[in-house]
Amino acid sequence: MTLHRRDVVSQLLKGRGRLLVVAGLGSTAWDITAAGDHDLNFPMWGAMGQAAMMGLGLAIAQPKRRVVVITGDGEMLMGIGSLATIGVQQPANLTVVAIDNERYGETGMQRTHTAHGVDLTSVAAACKFKHAITATKDVAAVRKLVYKTPGPNFATIKVADDKLPLVLPPKDGVVLRARFRRALLGESADVLPEER
């Protein structure tokens, strides 16, 4: 049975609890928003290639929270070196999930490198991710990686190349940054402790 991206992302985020979520630009940002906009979502609207690194920074800064990066195959390919950087850091609380439709969905559905057989899961495994899996039928194993298994973890989820209605998150970067920090850090989000 073919997986569909909106179902997959909404199943991954169901009952998300204290999970911190970063999404790469384009379709995955719309997917996490379709699953329910949340203060602890950081949907990116640019900086293509930096979703996994933003997840790494967040995971290092918040070692007691689970962090998931949900991004597309095209976005992951642009930042593929970051898998090597994450492999060196070995953050136990980070999982990177590539929603792989083998297409650049925002620019006309052109084929990405994964459509030609390039395998992101193998790249992550070679970069010393503790667990690297590919899901084609369901997301149960991916959920376990996201919420429980010590990482760094990587999952490719193969999905259909559906063209879906846009579900847009807030667009103002300052709003996204400020709401995330307030939800995570409380009072110390806006004024530094040393300035109080």
Binding site: A47, Q50, M54, G57, G81
Partner: peptide, 19 residues
């Protein structure tokens, strides 16, 4: 880092997390 670009993602994520 493998390239300087990665640093921008890193510092942004770190600040989201309060570091």
């Amino acid at each position: 880092l493998t390239t300087e670009e990665e640093g921008i993602g890193l510092v942004s994520g770190a600040w989201l997390g309060g570091q």
